[in-house]
Amino acid sequence: MKPDNTELTEIGLAPFGGKGRILLLACGALAHEILTLIKLNNWSHMTLTCLPANLHLYPERIPAAVEVAVHKHRTEYDEIFVLYADCGTGGLLLDMCNELGVEMLEGPHCYSFFEGNEAFAETSEDEITAFYLTDFLVRQFDAFVWKPLGLERHPELRDMYFGNYEKLVYQAQTNVPELDEKARRCAARLGLKYERRFTGYGDLETSLQKVSN
């Protein structure tokens, strides 16, 4: 079952081999973070391949894209771990992973697992007026926020989209001053207060540590 109008080209980013190989099938928005963790922990038995990050703009297409990739690689690896949270699929991705017999990340979305699912669940109701960015989304703000909403052509729509938000929370995975400054500019462009919150890799890292054993 191939999703219509979805580019399924995978990006093999960490072609490590070895006995007992594990394939990490991930969202392209997590590629930089996963590669960093692989290198830091010397997980040479893991291979990373990514589906396009822009699938996040079409969450209904994610389950079928994951299904195609799992079937493609199943015989090549001892284990496949899906590095997506629910990501707006309404439980359909979890159902697909259960049907395929593969595990996936826990949590509703990357903002939750970067902060830690338990911690995010405790604070999310109090931050209903917060708009979140990760390292990836700060880097790709125009491509994944500004342009998809049509704000480069119609900046007057900004308040319609963001009028109910009060602050932009930058969930920083790394301590990079340039990203901090860019996130501040993103908040200013959206007319929101700015808060930087260092999360590190959160449950992404702890989940990979469990898989690596």
Rank of each mutant, 00 (worst) to 15 (best):
W43M: 06
L157W: 12
C97Y: 08
L40M: 15
C27E: 05
P177A: 12
L168K: 10
V66L: 12
T36E: 13
E125V: 03
I34P: 06
L23T: 07
L30K: 04
L30A: 05
R185Q: 09
E33T: 10
A172S: 13
G90K: 11
S44H: 12
L30N: 06
K19Q: 04
N54K: 13
L48A: 01
I22Y: 07
E181F: 14
T36Q: 05
V211Q: 13
H71G: 12
N98R: 15
H73D: 06
R158A: 09
A64S: 15
I38Q: 13
L92G: 09
R189C: 07
V169M: 00
A172H: 00
Y170A: 04
T6R: 14
V66P: 12
E33P: 09
R61I: 00
D135C: 06
Q209T: 01
A14N: 02
E122L: 13
F141A: 08
K2F: 08
S207P: 03
E166H: 13
E76T: 11
E33D: 14
E181P: 00
E106P: 03
A172Q: 05
P108E: 13
E125I: 05
N164Q: 11
L57A: 06
P177H: 13
L57P: 01
Y201T: 02
L168T: 03
G20A: 08
T206D: 02
Y201M: 13
W43N: 03
F113T: 05
D203Q: 11
N42S: 12
S207C: 09
Y165W: 08
K147N: 14
R21K: 12
R158W: 02
C186F: 02
A64H: 11
V102I: 09
